[in-house]
């Protein structure tokens, strides 16, 4: 009775936007606070994506709402900082997206090989 049909477990999830994908990727190996996230996103995108702070926190708010990430106080040398980490749902969404991209890359690679060969 408790669980009315939910749409959170969509069999065909929509592709993630690039900022969301990069945020989830950045949090995949360890929790990070806002500034560390921004730096890491710039690093993993080879400097191509430089999110503004406003954009980052807008995306973090949405991800918290979706329960894909959670925040907690990270002990810092000077003071406590809010840090973010992936939830199991966030990790699942990232895995689905990676799988989707991998599949597309496989098809693209095969077709290019076909047309070149």
């Amino acid at each position: 009775m408790r669980h009315v049909a939910t749409n959170n477990r969509d069999p065909e999830p929509k592709p993630l936007s690039e900022p969301v994908f990069l945020i989830l990727t950045s949090l995949a190996d360890q929790p990070r606070h806002g500034y560390a996230l921004l730096r890491d996103i710039q690093d993993i995108s080879n400097g191509r994506v430089a999110l503004s702070t406003g954009t980052l926190y807008g995306a973090l708010r949405r991800l918290l709402e979706e329960d894909w990430i959670e925040r907690f106080k990270q002990k810092d040398t000077s003071r406590d900082k809010q840090a973010y980490q992936l939830t199991s749902e966030g990790r699942r969404q990232l895995r689905l997206e990676v799988e989707r991209m991998r599949q597309l890359a496989r098809v693209a690679g095969a077709r290019m090989k076909e047309s070149e060969g």
């Binding site: 806002g34 921004l38 702070t53 926190y57 973090l60 900082k81 809010q82």
Partner: peptide
């Protein structure tokens, strides 16, 4: 998010 945003911008 206010304090966090201000801190992050100051760092950047």
């Amino acid at each position: 998010f206010g304090p966090e945003i201000v801190d992050t911008i100051a760092q950047r």
